[in-house]
């Protein structure tokens, strides 16, 4: 094959009208759902992820997102449905199993935590992949979905109406509720969250329980990861978890502002990601994570005071 033609075909023709205008004028119905789903996922992950990053739990999030796979598949196989409840139970079961196994291996042998993490989540993930390959047809899941999600599939879902006010695909509604839940809980428990993340000793001395906080945060993380799984797959969740928070922390050193910026990043990521995915005919989740990776690189280089350029000039 001719190399030149490969490159020219790699980037398809760009039509502003088709890529940026028509989704909002002609085809609002499917595209608004893709956009909203992308936004809800990135916002929920990013908002919570800000704290996850500060508490150095980022890679735990990665581990959970991989190891829920066998739980999901087994739940499918047992219940023979894609209902939310069995799937959620399966995923939570797998999540609990992950943390328990990591603890057991770490405590009962001389394997260090990092290796224990690496052993447990890859093993569970491998089980999941083999199950998907064996029973893929029955569970309506395939390895592509595992690798980069099927965010676009929300457009195939029937709309369900909410109190007769408006109608939206079920998974978009669910993700919206999860995103609201995350933002609401973080705002409500903002203070204990901040204190226990910054200084667990002080939290303890003013009568808070850092352990309770930790478990609550882990549970919320599990909920968010599980709800995002079908949209972004097992691997890209970590992009949504880490990038918004770290990028924002390069732009401000006030936590409330940082949390605000993560929402803006989620918005930009979902919006640009949707348009790029439409233009390049690629996975929307992949496009969103590439966009927020790009936003991070921009902030890293150009951020005032903390950016590379600023530091070089100083």
């Amino acid at each position: 094959m001719d190399t030149m033609s490969t490159w020219s075909q790699l980037i398809p023709e760009f039509s502003f009208q088709q890529v940026f205008v028509e989704p909002w004028t002609e085809f609002l119905d499917p595209f608004i759902w893709i956009f909203l789903m992308g936004f809800f996922v990135t916002a929920a992950c990013g908002f919570l992820g800000t704290f996850i990053v500060w508490r150095r739990m980022a890679l735990v999030g990665d581990a959970i997102s991989h190891s829920v796979l066998p739980g999901l598949v087994i739940a499918f196989l047992v219940s023979q449905s894609r209902d939310t409840l069995p799937m959620f139970l399966g995923a939570v079961g797998a999540g609990i199993l992950t943390t328990a196994l990591i603890e057991v291996i770490h405590q009962k042998s001389r394997i260090k935590t990092d290796a224990a993490l690496g052993i447990v989540f890859t093993t569970l993930f491998a089980i999941g992949v083999v199950l998907v390959s064996l029973y893929g047809e029955n569970v309506d899941l395939d390895t592509d979905c595992v690798l980069y999600g099927e965010l676009e599939h929300v457009t195939l879902e029937p709309l369900s109406s909410v109190l007769g006010l408006f109608a939206a695909p079920g998974s978009v509604l669910r993700m919206g509720i999860v995103a609201l839940l995350v933002v609401g809980l973080v705002v409500l428990f903002y203070r204990p969250l901040v204190v226990s993340s910054f200084d667990p000793g002080l939290a303890r001395s003013i009568g808070m329980s850092p352990a309770v906080m930790h478990h609550a945060l882990m549970s919320l993380l599990a909920i968010v990861v599980v709800s995002s799984f079908e949209a972004v797959g097992a691997v890209l969740v970590i992009a949504m978890l880490i990038f918004p928070g770290t990028t924002a922390s390069l732009l401000s050193d006030r936590l409330p502002v940082i949390l605000g910026i993560t929402l803006v990043i989620a918005l930009l990521g979902a919006l640009l990601g949707m348009h790029f995915a439409l233009w390049l005919d690629i996975s929307t989740a992949g496009a969103i994570s590439t966009v927020i990776f790009g936003l991070f690189l921009l902030a890293w280089v150009f951020a005032p005071r903390r950016g590379l350029i600023w530091r070089a000039l100083r």
């Binding site: 690798l147 890209l236 970590i238 390049l280 005919d281 690629i282 992949g286 496009a287």
Partner: peptide, 19 residues
């Protein structure tokens, strides 16, 4: 580590989708 993992992987997925 997580950022490089996810960022590079995302770019890889986009390129593979295109290929």
């Amino acid at each position: 580590l997580g950022m490089v993992l996810a960022g590079f992987y995302g770019v890889g997925i986009v390129l593979m989708n295109r290929i």
